[in-house]
Design a protein around this nucleic acid. Structure first.
Lengths: 116, 116
DNA sequence: ATTAGATTTCGGTGTAAAACGAAATGAGAA
DNA sequence: TTCTCATTTCGTTTTACACCGAAATCTAAT
């Protein structure tokens, strides 16, 4: 991987909303509408953030009925990506925003959320 | 440190030229004109890159006569910054561009460089 | 003090990226 | 098939950033 691609990895991490997404996905897999609810952004915006994280290799997706679940790419073969993922809990811990996000994803009901 | 500031750390790493600067500074301290010579950018551009890395905490500066030496902030008290610095050799190694950069800084003569 | 040279700061330009709403896509239910 | 709804893509706007040259700053030597 060339240095331009390494820079792109860090660019994917350079947005607070994308860091919040990664921290949430380290709790459990989530669909787009759940993340949208927590971040209070437009669905299209969240979708774009997810595609950036996916392109960088940090997350993968899985179809489940009409939903698309996103999850951390835990078995990533790229050692740089894998080490960054493993460092995230150390780098970002006890953050107020992230704590609230995690509280929210634990009380969110996907079925209710998507049908309102 | 809030999550916005963590994002700024990664933003500082999200530019290939700034990664090249960090890799060069892990070999030895360098002045602005030496880095400018290697990167082939305008001096003002390099100066701005350095101020971004300095603001993020990755590097520190030291006056030496008419020169300003920049060096890795090795004794950084921030554990996130410190761990990122220590991971850089693992994340970026055997890169062609970086290898050429390091060859150049080993053959560059600061006195000649600045007086041409 | 004045000059010379290294670096920083300041405008300006072009490009990238974040955000949104609307339209398009794709998958399950009726 | 047709409808519903989650998600993606597209077009647009606004903001941020990389880059440059010129002017300003700061230091050392004349």
């Amino acid at each position: 991987m060339q240095i331009e691609e390494k820079a792109k990895l860090f660019k994917a991490l350079s947005d607070p909303n994308r860091l919040r997404i990664l921290k949430m996905l380290q709790v459990r897999k989530l669909c787009v509408c759940e993340i949208t609810e927590v971040l209070s952004l437009a669905t299209s915006t969240v979708s774009e953030h997810l595609s950036i994280l996916k392109r960088a290799g940090f997350i993968i997706e899985e179809k489940e009925g009409k939903w698309v679940n996103y999850m951390i790419n835990s078995n990533c073969c790229d050692t740089t990506v894998a080490s960054i993922i493993s460092m995230l809990p150390f780098w970002i811990s006890n953050d107020n925003t992230v704590s609230c996000d995690i509280d929210k994803i634990n009380s969110v009901d996907r079925a209710k959320l998507c049908c309102k």
